[in-house]
Design a binder for these strands. Structure first.
Lengths: 210, 210
DNA sequence: CCTACCGATCGGTAGG
DNA sequence: CCTACCGATCGGTAGG
């Protein structure tokens, strides 16, 4: 069932009052690109496939974006931003007296929910990243570095609380954890173990007794 | 510096006596495909790029293989086999009285060495797998399952030795570990932390007390 | 936003 | 193992 793309709202007010929220053309294109990138990778995400998904012809994509890589770059960048925001929000939603263990569990769960359930942007930026053109990858170094720093702080809290053997390098802990989280898209199936259980197990795995 | 491909040895004896071992044409093609798959992914691994890498013309590839996917399938399958053999060999090389911790460290190290330093086949089968055509992925389900079982046994040893909290699911431990190992190709740089250190840290991270 | 097109490149084949 | 080619498809553009 295909529908023609809706013309972009002419103002924020228009967008806010439209009953079933009509997405702008740019947003629809980005959504379609994120979904394709997640499930089929960079090369298979053709401008024509994106166009077809939003109900327009191939050439019309270039009315909204200057190039394929401009679309891909925006998707990947937004993907990193989305997972950053999700983890940040999950952490600040916890009570001030939450234990470091609870904070770790919350961060893991937010990352997994974002990349497995909530956002094609996040999963696209994780799965498709490896073989993206260098120019696109350079464009999101800053966002990615920012996300790394968030985890460096979180891991550092765990050490201060004495929950991790001080002989283990904090880099190892972070790489172990984020690696396992980023790889989850390769095996996760919604009907098997739930994200709550995975998060609890992953946190418990790296924290030492009590 | 390009050289024409060597004609395949006409017998095993010929191959064994050639002074600097000349690889058969099929092997050269597989090697080139593995390297391309590892570094540039499935779609960028074109039959013409493979041919150029071994010094022949595009069409000549089809004298040795019936299709691109036949080449890719063989590379990916061999990649799984190579890492399986590496881990298996590392484990059986240990003294019979080696602790479960040593066995875990050895298995981790063998997986990382295979996928990061020794084998383009292993790294290709890990990095490129996600976006491979379904037909190719089906072809190596058996090998991959076999590798999973090896790790299931290894993890089970850790539980029996009381090195892991029995409240954590063994699946979680295996997925955490293999996920982190498979993702290592995305951040590992030979000039930073060595594989020995990473292996020791990863093993220590998930083992409790002691 | 569409039609119609560009040059380049893809996997694969015929025939030698 | 090569030359020469096939139909299909790619990212992108002109002109409306």
């Amino acid at each position: 069932m295909k529908r023609k793309i809706a013309s972009a709202p002419t103002s924020a007010a228009t967008a806010a009052t439209a009953a079933p929220v009509e997405l702008g053309a740019r947003r629809q294109i980005l959504n379609a690109a994120a979904k394709l990138l997640r499930h089929r990778g960079y090369e298979a995400t053709t401008t024509r496939a994106i166009a077809t998904a939003v109900g327009i012809k191939g050439g019309s994509i270039y009315h909204h974006f200057p190039s394929k890589d401009a679309i891909v770059g925006e998707v990947v960048n937004e993907g990193v931003r989305v997972v950053y925001d999700a983890v940040e929000k999950a952490l600040s939603a916890l009570p001030a007296k939450a234990t470091p263990r609870r904070r770790l569990e919350a961060a893991i769960k937010a990352h997994l929910l974002s990349s497995l359930e909530h956002s094609n942007y996040t999963s696209a930026s994780i799965r498709a990243f490896a073989f993206l053109p260098d120019s696109v990858r350079r464009d999101c170094r800053i966002e990615r570095r920012r996300y790394e720093v968030l985890w460096e702080k979180l891991v550092s809290e765990l050490y201060k609380a004495g929950l991790i053997d001080p002989e283990i390098s904090p880099d190892s802990i972070r790489l172990l954890l984020l690696g396992a989280l980023n790889w989850a898209g390769e095996w996760y199936r919604p009907d098997r173990m739930g994200i709550d259980d995975i998060s609890r197990d992953f946190a418990a795995s790296i924290l030492r007794g009590k």
